[in-house]
Design a protein around this nucleic acid. Structure first.
Lengths: 338, 338
DNA sequence: TTGAAAGCGCTAACAA
DNA sequence: TTGTTAGCGCTTTCAA
């Protein structure tokens, strides 16, 4: 790297003080036009570019927001994360913000990462995605008074802005649909229950069984790790039951795809011999004809960005808490019981 | 936000100088153990955390690498980008680095973003993904002498470290396979030709036709925008030819999936009435039985991280230029011509 | 073993 | 209209 030009370089070159150079370049109107012209051309010629780190230190803001991703289990590679990231990134860029991403395994290292970028003042705000029922990240941020928004609710008694999907209502509607088709043995591949969405979706499953007069049998519920592989493994267990289910609903599409894989390998025809459904409506779902619940993850990312920017600016949020009802999409993977 | 503790706060609280506090906390051994103990406990109690921005300014390094993503066309939502990002993020985190992501539309704003994070010293190095034949980003970085690695070659006469896939050889092998099955009208949905990978993959297509005695007909080649929708549109055009192709090969899986969609909607059976193949082996490819070429994108991300770190540290790279041969995966989407 | 002073590059209050 | 001074929070040289 050739040495970079700083304000000092320009000051020396033009004979003006650093202050004047700074103000000329910043567009202040208390600089003589002639002076500004000289300084600007010198800056141009020297290839000057402001050191953003220095500016950040001075201004006490970074024009950057932070997102911390889990490094194990599903992450970027999970369409859920990619889509939300795309949505956030797209929208935040409009306001000239960048995104700082830290990848950490869940656990203490993760919380440390939050501490680090918050206390280290590396970002102006944070988006917490995939909340947990008792989310210590949110507890920390709220207690710290640091600007943040979350994708997901918690059971914490804290007042913070979020967007969440109504996973309970969505799953409820789906199970109801299956029951109306005549399914009586509807198995469920749940998400880990410390995750808010996992808990809510399972709740919808149980409530729907209740309301339709079907009995909730714990042996028809497996907990999966949200990956395709996990879905496949869970499906295997469910098929091995003495009385296998006629429909399998997974808490997310990825696991539903894994389930489909497994079923097909066992010669079962999806939607005919057995029904399968998921949740999320990731891009592959449509291609595979997977019945699922759509939530506009990409657009939620947009909204989260806008909310966070408002929070950072200290604005009042018109709707600080948003719960969206997902839309049931019936596709070929679901049919009446065989 | 409550006010944060700084070195000054601790200095005042303990009566030591800022210098001593700094060194005590940094673990220098020229500090009396008793002093260190006092300072540490004070730091603990005050909830001290170093201001990373200030440290960066002083140390002239950020422990951050930069990636600039296109905000239009396929991006995060494209498994290609998510996977490479996951690979990079995973591995870079091991060394304690973070990732700064800027989302920009291709064009001048994009190059500006590179300028901004480079000259603004916001990152220590950059990963350029999806290179173009004459890539002005690489020209800039190389000329600037800034640490970077690229996923993809260019036609520029510049010496820089990269990993690339041998898209030509991969496509060649695939087309050869189709020809051997008896296909004579093999259409191709190309990627934009200013993209290195798009150019190379098409080259493989042409060369394979040549070598198998088939004639290259430009009307059997459509250029797509790499999205599923684009693949579907291209497929429609190809099907409308007086003599439709018996096989359609897309330059990436996403377009291949779009092609499959379109064909199925028209009542064609994939792999029986017509063959389809892609490139990349994204997760959905396996589920859909799409014949494709696998490149270990995730692992390439890992390697790019390691290379970049080496470059940042000024180390010598054993293999600064890597071209990987993708692996042909024959799946159900391909069969002999009807 | 500790502290004073300088400096990373920038902005801003205040004085001239 | 311009410059002096101070300071953002940290590290590091050098002297005590």
């Amino acid at each position: 790297m050739n040495e970079r030009a700083t304000l000092k370089t320009i000051a020396k070159a033009t004979g003006y003080s650093i202050t004047t150079v700074s103000r000329a370049l910043a567009g202040y109107d208390d600089v003589a036009e002639a002076t500004r012209a000289v300084i600007q051309s010198s800056a141009q010629q020297l290839g000057y570019f402001p050191n953003l780190t220095a500016r950040q230190l001075q201004k006490q803001r970074t024009d950057t927001i932070g997102i911390i991703l889990p490094s194990v289990g599903p992450r970027f590679a999970d369409p859920y994360f990619s889509l939300i990231l795309a949505g956030i990134g797209d929208e935040i860029a409009v306001s000239g913000y960048d995104i700082l991403i830290s990848t950490r395994p869940p656990g203490p290292a993760e919380l440390e990462a939050y501490r680090s970028i918050v206390e280290g003042q590396r970002v102006d705000g944070i988006v917490v995605i995939r909340t947990r029922l008792e989310d210590e990240r949110i507890a920390y941020l709220a207690e710290r008074g640091f600007p943040f928004v979350a994708f997901g609710r918690t059971t914490l008694d804290l007042d913070y802005p979020y967007i969440d999907e109504d996973g309970e209502a969505g799953t409820y509607e789906l199970i109801l649909h299956l029951a109306q088709l005549g399914h009586e043995r509807i198995a469920y591949i749940a998400a880990p229950q410390h995750l808010t969405f996992g808990y809510n979706r399972l709740k919808g499953y149980k409530r729907a069984l209740d309301d339709t007069g079907l009995v909730y049998h714990p042996e028809y519920v497996e907990v999966g790790d949200l990956t395709r592989r996990g879905g496949s493994a869970a499906a295997e267990k469910l098929l091995a039951k003495p009385l296998p289910p006629t429909a399998i609903v997974a808490a997310n599409d990825l696991m539903a795809l894994g389930t489909m894989n497994h079923l097909q390998q066992n010669g079962l025809r999806i939607g005919i011999d057995i029904s399968v459904a998921g949740f999320d409506d990731i891009p592959a779902a449509e291609a595979l004809g997977l019945t699922t619940l759509n939530q506009p993850i990409f657009r939620i990312g947009h909204q989260l960005s806008q909310m966070l920017l408002a929070v950072i600016e200290g604005q009042h949020l018109a709707e600080p808490k948003l719960v969206l009802k997902p839309k049931l999409l019936i596709r070929a993977s679901v049919g009446p019981p065989a």
